[in-house]
Design a protein around this nucleic acid. Structure first.
Ligand code: FES
Ligand code: FES
Lengths: 165, 165
DNA sequence: CAAAATAGGACTCAAATGGTCCTCTTATTG
DNA sequence: CAATAAGAGGACCATTTGAGTCCTATTTTG
């Protein structure tokens, strides 16, 4: 449907590594990259961004590295994504002011998008890194996809999704 | 956060025009384009795609045009988006097979993303075109952004992977 | 000081998007 | 039947964006 950038995805994977270890464990870019099989420069770039955003604490110099700035259950997906791909909305238009879209003024659906966008943001905000790093069991994480995500009780909505590609 | 393509956005605006009129009303690309202040070729392109996807019924020839193939409350956002930007998932990886991502095998969070992706899909699937076209009142549409979208009970709770819900 | 790490950008390359145009087919109408 | 008004279906280009690399500081440790 929508696509998150790959970097954000990687970032979460990277952070999950921390979440799966001891609390204050410190790891450097090289080891981390090896762990998730990512090219070092890539991992490095992402880690830097994460550190800049305050999600990771960094330590320079020999024996330096990164560690989580907060407990894994105190970090939400929304924050990670924000850090890695900026606070953009679902649509160009729904993100704050109507700078990009020239039809914004007469756009009938603008407000709705903002609502939906906000809902997603909240949803992502309520999923913690800890739950992403947890076991694939029907634990907290599976629940993430479990609930039908009640949103708009679209009046007769059971529009069948017929067309199977 | 994520961004939907502009075309999908436009498509929804376009469809909303139909939803705001009489049931079987027919409109041609030119008029529609004028109504939403979009360049005609763009509108045309989008309408064609929508028709191909079966969301609009088209009539060729003089006095031709498009009209909704179904009732506005029988068309979901998910369908529209699928029609306009293909069935891609939140992450490259979460969309079906692990073709694109080379770290898919050892990716700890893959499964979780698929769940989340599915949840969003469902959420969008439950919002009808009718509710997008409706008044900005706290009607069905506002509700879209209302509920906190229960997903993973994250914040400050059992961080440890354990702790049965 | 030397080595090992992060910080911070600049840079390149490929792919996706937005947007336009052209040609063909179908229908209406006089 | 001919003219015209639509949609169908692509081809096409320009720009933006994203992925990924690299180079040069700046900090630490020993
Ligand atoms: S399409 Fe841009 S504001 Fe709605
Ligand atoms: S990052 Fe690609 S499968 Fe998780």
């Amino acid at each position: 449907m929508f696509r998150m950038t790959r970097q954000a995805d990687y970032g979460i994977v990277l952070l999950a590594c921390f979440a799966q270890r001891e609390e204050g464990d410190s790891l450097n870019a090289r080891d981390l990259a090896a762990e998730v099989h990512l090219p070092v420069p890539m991992a490095s770039k992402i880690l830097k961004a994460l550190a800049r955003a305050g999600l990771l604490a960094s330590q320079r110099g020999v024996k330096g590295g990164y560690r989580l700035a907060r407990r894994p259950d105190e970090i939400s997906l929304a924050e990670i994504i924000d850090a890695l791909e900026g606070p953009i909305g679902i649509t160009d238009c729904s993100s704050g002011d109507h700078s990009s879209c020239d039809i914004a003024a007469l756009c009938a659906v603008r407000g709705k998008w903002q609502s939906i966008s906000g809902a997603m943001r909240e949803a992502l905000g309520s999923i913690s890194l800890a739950s992403m790093a947890g076991p694939p069991e029907p634990g907290p994480a599976a629940a993430a996809g479990r609930r039908p995500l009640p949103s708009a009780p679209a009046r007769g909505k059971r529009a069948r999704k017929e067309g199977s590609p």
